[in-house]
Design a binder for these strands. Structure first.
Lengths: 230, 230
DNA sequence: GTATTTTCTGGTACTCAGTTCCAGTTTAGT
DNA sequence: ACTAAACTGGAACTGAGTACCAGAAAATAC
């Protein structure tokens, strides 16, 4: 590893160039409105080369240097740390340990992900925010079966918390880590709104639910134009 | 409205035909392996017509009739129903009220969604399982701000529960509703694994978390030898 | 320093999802 | 029976992603 070599250096530079130009173009014109051709042209390489470095267009946005740090942060926690608390601090301290410029890049990246719904899903998948992934880790570590109800439900809560953090960050403008911190610490006190009852709100809640599905019968309006908002 | 009319009947039939053939082909050959052309051909209509009925290929899977019933079920719940319990019974009774053949179709549909990861994300988006959607409904109904922390966290828990139910249904083979029922009722007792601490499992947990970044995808074999590395 | 092998690049040509537009047909309204 | 509205099929397009190959550029061998 002492000798990077010319070839390796060129590759790293090409990759960085592609990423840089891609993120710039995405921010200027939007994710969907930017074509791979444009990115390749901006980085002065061919289309083929783009796909050689990033298997899909999504991948340019979805690189992630946080995970290795997360593992590290985890291993350092004291053994008597409650699991939910560990899930919180593991992620947040990993983030906070990123070098400042990478952390900033990370925030930009996440803002971009939030702006394009087609990216959100892919982002979750690639960064192990799935219930499956979380549950399996816990189950394996604690020697429980992989379909253990408690483990799965717990994993669902954690996954839900991360989704919530994304929404919260989006709406308040605060950083993702801060949002996640707030959400998780709120959860450590139990599920909120637990005492609340339906009261007279059932109808209004129900109304909100219907407008989801405009066309169930054949009476549906032909096509629905409002599909992708970007 | 008692007179559907010839045109409407034809449309309903075409739509049903398309969906029926699509689901069949997807089950026989897989979602990704089935092209829109094949579906259209099977239903004996043109490609254009397919897209006129279903704006995207995903939509043919993601078209369901349960939501209207959900609203109905909600409105019937007694006012003193705790919110979390309401979120459970609203969904489950709606499902159980579906006519048997539609319910079966629904289960097939959901199994299919679970089998294709690219569908899972879209499914959440379109069926209002997003944190955003749930939170907004609750916030609006109760007159709280849309960025209320408690509301968002609660919505995250519900969203997580639905994700969990999908995983659980997939692993145990039970129906989605039954899984959701179990998950939600478990949550009504509070967050599970709350007492658990990290103990000596931190390292193993951490290890599990990293390998997420590397691989573990179902898709075939594109070039991804060294992606998150440089 | 030249030759050989390995790796990277650009280009062409494909498939499939999704859009747009138009011409021709079918249904509805009167 | 005739006209207006809605539906269909087809052609032509864009953009993402894949497969393949010829040639350039490094890395290594001699």
């Amino acid at each position: 590893m002492s000798d990077p070599g010319l070839r390796e250096r060129k590759k790293a530079r090409t990759r960085a160039d592609l990423q840089r130009h891609a993120l710039r173009l995405f921010r200027e014109h939007g994710y969907a409105e930017t074509t791979v051709d444009e990115i390749a042209a901006a980085a002065d390489v061919s289309r083929s080369t783009f796909f050689r470095y990033f298997p899909t267009k999504e991948d340019v946005v979805l690189f992630d240097d946080v995970d290795p740090l997360m593992a590290e942060a985890f291993a350092e926690l004291p053994p008597d740390t409650p699991l939910l608390h560990a899930m919180r601090t593991g992620v947040t301290t990993a983030f906070r340990r990123l070098p400042p410029e990478k952390r900033e890049l990370e925030e930009i990246r996440m803002a971009l992900v939030r702006s394009a719904p087609e990216l959100q899903a892919a982002a979750r998948e690639r960064s192990g925010i799935t219930v499956t992934a979380i549950a399996d880790r816990i189950a394996d570590a604690y020697g429980r079966p992989r379909d253990d109800l408690d483990v799965l439900v717990f994993a669902g809560v954690v996954a839900g918390a991360r989704l919530t953090a994304q929404t919260l960050a989006d709406r308040t403008g605060e950083s993702y880590i801060d949002a996640l911190d707030r959400v998780m610490s709120r959860l450590e006190d139990g599920i909120p709104l637990d005492g609340l009852t339906l009261g007279s709100h059932a109808t209004r809640l129900a109304d909100g639910l219907v407008e989801q599905a405009a066309g169930s019968d054949g009476t549906a309006d032909t096509t629905r134009p409002e599909q992708h908002r970007m």
